[in-house]
Amino acid sequence: MKEFEFLKSELEDMKENHTWQEIKQVESKQGAYVTVNGKQVMQLSSNNYLGLTSHPRLVKAAQAAAEQFGAGTASVRTIAGTFTMHHELEKTLAAFKKTEAALVFQSGFTTNQGVLSSILTKEDIVISDELNHASIIDGIRLTKADKKVYRHVDMDDLERVLKKSMNYRMRLIVTDGVFSMDGNIAPLPEIVKLAEAYDAFVMVDDAHASGVLGENGRGTVNHFGLDGRVHIQVGTLSKAIGVLGGYVAGSHVLIDYLRHKGRPFLFSTSHPPAVTAACIEAINVLLEEPQHMEQLWDNTNYFKSMLVKMGLTLTKSETPILPIIIGEEALAQQFSERLLSEGIFAQSIVFPTVAKGKARIRTMITAEHTKKELDQALAVIQSAAKELHLL
């Protein structure tokens, strides 16, 4: 049988250029510590911002739902896979996001694909920040709309593009709320102001802002006081929410349209009962237990201040995403492995996830870490950085 020699050659190039990475296997539940290769290590790479993946209320809700409704739904939503709990989750999300309605997809990735591929036609143009998430990029590729990219968070460049695109049926500005590789927040007030001035629509992907920014974790739209002024809000249920899935929140018209046109929604089996019930309970926890967000930000501010004091090069992060810029791919991987050998699980991020020459260690702070644990991590980071001549 013919072999994939061309793929093998590309894989060898990746190894030579230090962009090949073995996927680490976690052998325990997520928390401040996890087990990797049989060893307990501190977790600094998870999106489990609030520690909800193992919160007793979520676990109990998931167990009860599985016992009552089974392990799965055995159907897509539009045939026989919509349980009453799916509607309950969507109503809960709409109220949480302060929108008329919401719709749940299988993941944040498929949400972006489903929304963009459904609502855009050849009569439209989509205008995207150059550092938007891969799911936005791939969603845009699925459309027949014209496409323009503006320089990262550059409002002058965004206005330039808007001025040159006045003849389209719809002009849709798409941005991440929080940029996942740098941790900075989109200048949403300025984006909305330009959109209103030039009669454009705005879509925000709040994957890394849900549960982190805004009142009770409602996201960047609420964080900036822009409720009711952003047309499409996308979020994830897989990061701070602690479970699985994605959703879009907006007007009744938008959600009704996506129910009939969103291909990932139409052709994917619905969320299992355990997942759905746990997501509902996660929103309840956000509303009723604000101490998790408070602890997250206390930990973030402390850890960031100590990294800066140490003299390491960071991005302009404004969130619990705190990337340490290394530069060279090989050095970033070496740094990550050195940290792991000393009990710190902090993964290196290299091309193609980030640009070549901008490799980094993306540390992720959670509400579950204690100050003592953060101090232990900081000591190991400083020691490894000195050893590798990064300080």
Rank of each mutant, 00 (worst) to 15 (best):
P189Q: 00
V174Y: 10
I241M: 11
V248L: 07
V230K: 01
Y168I: 08
G250T: 00
N184Q: 09
D176Y: 10
E196R: 03
H208N: 15
F224A: 00
S180L: 15
S238L: 05
V243L: 01
M203I: 05
V230N: 08
G214V: 06
M181Q: 13
L226T: 00
T220H: 01
I185H: 06
V234S: 07
E196L: 03
T175P: 13
L226P: 02
G246D: 12
A249L: 07
H260V: 10
S270Q: 12
M203P: 04
V243E: 08
H231L: 07
V192N: 01
D205I: 00
T269H: 12
M203G: 03
D176G: 06
V253R: 11
T220C: 04
R259N: 10
S251I: 03
D227P: 01
G250K: 06
F224S: 00
L258H: 02
L194G: 00
I255C: 04
S210C: 14
A200N: 10
H231Q: 14
I185D: 05
V243D: 05
K193G: 04
E190A: 02
S251W: 14
M203Q: 13
A200W: 07
P187D: 02
I232A: 05
G219K: 01
V178M: 12
S238A: 09
L254D: 13
H208C: 06
K163Y: 14
Y168L: 08
K163I: 15
D205P: 02
V212Y: 02
Y257M: 15
L254V: 07
M181N: 14
G219L: 07
S238M: 10
T220E: 01
N184R: 09
L254N: 09
R169C: 03
R171T: 12
M170T: 14
Y198E: 11
L194P: 07
G245K: 08
T175N: 12
A197Y: 13
I255T: 05
H260W: 13
D256W: 09
T175H: 03
F224I: 01
L266C: 08
L172H: 14
F265E: 14
